[in-house]
Amino acid sequence: MRKRKEALKALMFLLPSAAGVCLFWIIPYLDVIKRSFFSAVSGEFMGFHNFRTIFENQAFRLAAGNTLRFFGVCIPILVTLSLLVSVLLTREQKYLQLKKSLFLLPMAIPVASVVLIWKLLFHSQGLLNHFLSLFSVEGVDWMNTEASFWVLIISYIWRNLGYDVVLWVAGISGISASLYEAARVDGAGEWMCFWKITMPNLMGSLFTIVVLSLLNGFKVFREAYLVAGDYPQQDMYLLQHLFNNWYRDLSIDKMAAAAVVTGAVIMLLILALQRAWAKEA
């Protein structure tokens, strides 16, 4: 009886949100899953035909490959760099808040307001090449060669560094100071403290930070799209571009199948994340 009453109360608070979530997100997505097994034109049941089509599709292979490669390169760089910054930041309490603000600021900057700067930065006669030329380094045609891949990486790191720093700093400040004191008394150096105390205590945060960084990574499309448009140089052609282009052509079969495949991969990641959380608790 009490249980039913409590469930009723919860429902009262939850209902408006749950109804909207079903209407706008869940039901339409279930519809898309259904569609991925049918033909959009004839309405016939196709089995896995749509899935086979996308896996044989050149553009899909290119985009999926680039997206995987993008994550494979940028996540290790971001996670390591942000950890390094966080360790250095927390060593010195002076101006800690100010420095953290500076690192976090890019997260707040609307993409639209830096498009112009990005265009100037990566132009073949642009600022970055100007800077390189000061050290007599040959400039690179960033937007039209395979260097375009690095435009993505740079944009991503720039925007997400502060986010990861905040997460690491939270993890580091959760480590008891007495651990370090005891280690110092025993004669441990700074390097030793990092490997024997800081790192082991942060392993729990590592997985969470990696997954969150991955999911934030999909937004790099905003910079990529605004700087380079629908069909950028092929090394920066991501799954997000492909979805966008299929959407414009209304290739519903392919979009449905790709939405199901990508959704399933992300769902696996999220479930793994939840398991990791449960283990820690």
Binding site: L23, I27, Y29, V32, G263
Partner: peptide
């Protein structure tokens, strides 16, 4: 799960709805 799905995954369902 819904909060972490990138827009592109939900794009078609969004459009149809």
């Amino acid at each position: 799960a819904l909060m972490m799905m990138p827009f592109q995954v939900m794009m078609l369902s969004n459009y149809l709805m």
